[in-house]
Design a protein around this nucleic acid. Structure first.
Lengths: 146, 146
DNA sequence: ATCTAGATGCGAATTATTTGCATCTACTAA
DNA sequence: TTAGTAGATGCAAATAATTCGCATCTAGAT
């Protein structure tokens, strides 16, 4: 049941060391969980999965640093709280029902070209992520609303 | 100073009537403010602009209905609170600095094709909006972090 | 002018997220 | 291997955003 101490990608520990960050059990476990899940998870999802063993404040802080490290991506589904997924997952987008909140994955990402332009126009040094969510009505909710 | 009772687009009142919603001063004023601002505004921005004359709860409720009506778009800059802008503004995207939070507008939107595909794949009835934000480091912050 | 569904204000409740501080621990250097 | 220390965690309390219940009010229909 305890899957904490798997072999983790060397990249991870390297990334951490580069920034003088420690490879703590909490960090490793969070990444382990994310790597075994397709769906983006909320802080609460994670907390449940590890049975509350790690304090919420720590989870928030951990996700902050993982996001800054570029290992994790934060997504807003307008559910009232953030979701996170591994940045190394194949990049994709989401379709969210504005009524029931259902989320559908949209595979593939066509935004590379846009991204290059954006970099120039915006006069930024680097773009690390982007987040593209579509909002509409799923068929079930559309029926319900007529 | 009081710019509440301008001539508003007929579309608005129509949209409201269709759904048995009332054209109240609060709603008209919010739309008036949004139409005179290029930047997306937060609930608090709006509250300040109208000098607290309208209760926050009402503002939240109003933006909910305006969003459902499709008149207003909600955006997440990861600033800890939502931003809103007129859906009728020329559609564009944003580039957000992960460090200082600065937001730069990216004009034009190339996602129509993607949107059509998404509709099919996701098996939704309709897509009303999408939200595309890029996250990275602005030049100022990039310098600061080395 | 009246009636009523829908809107608002107010206060309180919820929920998400952040912060301060004491304690702990992963890594470094000897 | 072991001590020393910067960085990490837990806990509790503070903020901040958003929502809800309910009494009152008002836009729009008749």
């Amino acid at each position: 049941m305890n899957t904490v101490c798997k072999t983790h990608s060397p990249t991870l520990k390297e990334s951490l060391r580069e920034r003088k960050l420690k490879a703590t059990p909490a960090r490793l476990e969070i990444l382990d969980i994310l790597s075994h899940t397709k769906k983006p998870l909320s802080i609460n999802d994670i907390s449940v999965k590890i049975k509350g063993q790690t304090d919420l404040a720590t989870l928030y802080r951990t996700f902050d640093t993982l996001r800054d490290l570029g290992l994790v991506t934060q997504i807003d589904f307008r559910h009232g709280h953030a979701h996170y997924e591994l940045a190394t997952n194949e990049h994709h987008h989401h379709l969210v029902c504005e009524k029931c909140g259902k989320v559908v994955d949209i595979s593939k990402c066509n935004t590379t070209d846009i991204e290059k332009q954006v970099l120039k126009i915006g006069n930024f040094s680097s773009i690390k992520h982007h987040s593209l969510e579509f909002y509409g009505l799923c068929k079930a909710c559309d029926k319900g609303s007529r």
